[in-house]
Computed example of a mutant assay.
Amino acid sequence: MIRRDLEHRLTNALSHVPVVAVVGPRQVGKTTLALEIAHQQPTKKASYLDLELDSDLSKLDDAEGYLKRFNNQLLIIDEVQRKPDLFRLLRGLVDVRKREGETAGQFLLLGSASRELLQQSSETLAGRIRYLELSPFSSWEIYTDDPLAFNPEKLWFRGGFPNSFLAPTDDESWEWRNDFISTYIERDLPLMGPQVSATRMKRFWTMLAHYHGQQVVYSDLGKSLEVSHTTIKSYLDILTDFYMVRQIQPWAGNTKKRLIKSPKIYIRDTGLLHSLLNISTFEGLLGNPAVGASWEGFVMESIITRLSTKWQYSYYRTVTQTEIDLVLEGPGGQIWAIEIKKSGAPSVKKGFHAGCEDIKATHKFVVYSGTERFPLSDNVEAIGLVAFLKLIEE
């Protein structure tokens, strides 16, 4: 079993707060992680409820009576977004148990909807719940699992969904990803709320793949799909809410320059990106015009999933094309400017240096596909992905 970065944070959260919610896309390993953690609980018995099973869902017809049976236990509730009215009841149970001396580790909720969507139902749990996000396998997790054997190309090409990454062959990985996309569109998304035709959503998702790493022009996509720009925005929010797409917002600091205000769009898992772009072999990826944008998204997601909540991320771009791929703002006023290059001999353009001056960057890096670390001009440092991820930890 590949150890998940989230394991320590999840164990810590269960020892400090009564309700912990682990959110993330389907098939990413939330249930596996939760059951593994449950087996490690030294003093509490753990029980499991899967709300995708009619038999388990029916147990909550009298939810209060059923849940009261689990005093001094950890109850794991999977696919909790299927029962949004449960959050109000959980608040009452948590408060009653607190008065009886039971505080932490009462409920572990697993959900395939975003924290923002769940919060609409769980506002009453404010101060009683902690949210954690589980992503597909990250570069850091695969590296730490076996540092000597780590090869980022397999993770980049196949993506980090466990069944795709661990498939015995590239062909099996390809088949799994295509099945996942079809199932997600035809069954999972409608089951979780959004009512959009499968054909239209598949077409929209594929069109987004061609915008990977760019600012989306809602009106252009709307014309192609024959819907309004507001409908396009709602489709984009659906895929964002269910962890398929990441919208990176523009830098919001003070500058006299005219900035691009729309978010940059990335398909979060590069394996799914390659399936949507019909790139079925690694050699085909290397020869595809999208190779640079794909690598940029892979590095971007590797970095963002590694960040603690003390860091904020954005991108910087002016109307005159001065651009920084990723801006990290962290403790002590740190501002890291990051350029991402697929090339083994990286260099930076004047626009990057100008952007660093605009945002007053304290650190400047080019994250590239090699492994050596060396200085470039104007205090910019070239660095490999793993070495950069180690810096974040430090």
Rank of each mutant, 00 (worst) to 15 (best):
G370Q: 07
A361F: 09
D325C: 06
V367D: 11
N288P: 10
E381Q: 12
R306G: 07
S377G: 09
C356D: 01
R373E: 15
A361H: 07
E296L: 12
I335T: 15
K350T: 14
T362P: 14
I338W: 07
R317G: 02
G351S: 03
W311M: 07
A361P: 03
F374N: 06
I304K: 04
G370A: 08
G297A: 03
G292K: 15
F365S: 04
H353Q: 05
E323F: 00
C356H: 01
E372R: 11
V327T: 03
T318Q: 02
R306N: 10
P375Y: 08
A293V: 04
E339P: 03
K341T: 00
G292R: 14
Y316H: 01
E323D: 06
A290P: 02
A337C: 02
E357L: 13
E301L: 02
I324C: 03
C356F: 02
Y313F: 15
T371D: 10
T322W: 00
R306T: 15
H353F: 07
Q312H: 14
H363S: 12
G330C: 13
C356K: 01
S369A: 15
W336K: 04
D358F: 01
T305V: 08
I304F: 03
S294K: 04
A361Q: 09
I359M: 05
W336A: 04
G292W: 11
W295K: 07
E296W: 11
E301P: 00
P289A: 13
Q312I: 04
V367A: 06
E323H: 00
T320R: 08
P331I: 07
I383F: 03
P346H: 08
E323N: 03
L307Y: 09
